[in-house]
Design a protein around this nucleic acid. Sequence first.
DNA 1: AGGAAGATGCTCT
DNA 2: GAGCATCTTCCTA
Length: 184
Amino acid sequence: MSLGKLLQRPVLEVAPRLLGMRLVSELGGHLTAVMLSEVEAYDGAGDPASHAYGGRTRRNESMFGPAGTAYVYRSYGIHWCLNVVVGPAGEPGAVLLRGGIPITGRESMVARRRRHDHLSDGPGKLCQALGVTGEDDGRSLLAGPLRLEGAGGDAAGQVAATPRIGITKATERPWRFVLLPTPG
DNA sequence: AGGAAGATGCTCT
DNA sequence: GAGCATCTTCCTA
């Protein structure tokens, strides 16, 4: 299945299959990439923890775009967080990209992060490492300077589901998916 | 290793 | 004005 098709499947099906895929950035003239290792599903209108719960607003506008659209929002006034819009057209499902393992452009990430460790192990850090900002909100992640690459689903069997982080509503839903460290 | 707390700005009621 | 889908630094072990 193509990436574009995969992203049109239900959010809870797509989220774990994003693990192991690459997120590539050419933003700001630097080539950087990570392998996704941590994501969270937000199931649109039926999910009290979703930014789209309660309907369309100025901020969540891009969540109502086609699957593969980037939804970037400011978190706690300081950080940027990146989501991939997922699911059938018009349904505001999204997957928050919470973390990845650096695979390309480590030097650029170090420069952006101004440190040598914890480069992309958190949603705010991931955006900073890849140069993602509010400018990228609404952009397509299927092509262009910020894009997803990979078949997906390869990580099945190495994925754990846990409760989501940093939310106060619907905390019981195990919709955070992490790539288990490969033994050895 | 892990908890506490402050920074900071935007969105929506 | 309240409430955040967070990160860092500063502490105690």
